[in-house]
Computed example of a mutant assay.
Amino acid sequence: MSIKRLQAGPRMSQAVIHNNTVYLAGQVAIDAPGKSVTEQTKNILDRIDALLAEAGTDKTKLLSATIWLTDMRFFNEMNAVWDAWVAQGNTPARACVESNLATPDFWVEIGVVAAV
């Protein structure tokens, strides 16, 4: 049983690959704190694209996604970016919930699981 960890730190790894599946940690807009939900979502999806590429896969192989919003009023704004990004015909199972996040500068967090 092989397990590969990408960008492993003392608390967590950004991605873990096991049995041809990659599990990404929840991603926040590290490059866009405090910016609009649109900008944060774009930044997060860019980060997800990069991590999936590092794992040897891409968004066409998404299996599931979990999205956390600090306020459901952001749902349509986030979805506008998501819908433009997600691979049509290859959409994952998805959940979107309202939740507090680690810092008040982030309004969106997204975690995904994909096949490798």
Rank of each mutant, 00 (worst) to 15 (best):
K4I: 09
D46T: 10
V113S: 08
E39P: 02
D83M: 04
T38F: 09
F106Q: 01
K61Y: 06
F75H: 10
V86Y: 05
F106G: 00
D46A: 13
P33G: 10
M1V: 10
R5M: 15
L6K: 02
A115C: 11
L52C: 07
W107G: 02
I67N: 01
W68Q: 12
N19C: 12
E54F: 01
A8Q: 15
T60P: 01
E98W: 09
L101Q: 07
P33H: 07
A87W: 04
A65P: 01
D49T: 13
Q27H: 07
R94K: 14
E54P: 01
P92Q: 07
V113Y: 03
M1R: 08
R73C: 07
A114K: 00
A95M: 11
R47Q: 09
K42E: 04
I17F: 03
W107K: 07
D58H: 04
S99T: 13
T60V: 05
V116H: 05
F74C: 03
E39V: 13
T103V: 11
P92I: 07
V86C: 11
L63T: 10
K4H: 12
L45K: 03
D46E: 15
K42G: 00
A50K: 07
N90F: 09
M72A: 13
A53F: 03
G34Y: 12
N100L: 12
T60C: 09
L63M: 15
D105E: 15
G56A: 10
Q27E: 10
A80Y: 12
T41S: 09
D58A: 07
S36Q: 05
E109C: 15
N20P: 02
F74S: 03
R47G: 02
L24Q: 02
N19H: 15
E98C: 13
T103G: 05
D58M: 03
D71Q: 10
R5P: 01
D83C: 02
S64T: 11
K42W: 03
R47P: 00
C96Y: 06
T21K: 13
V37P: 00
P33F: 08
P10V: 13
P33W: 04
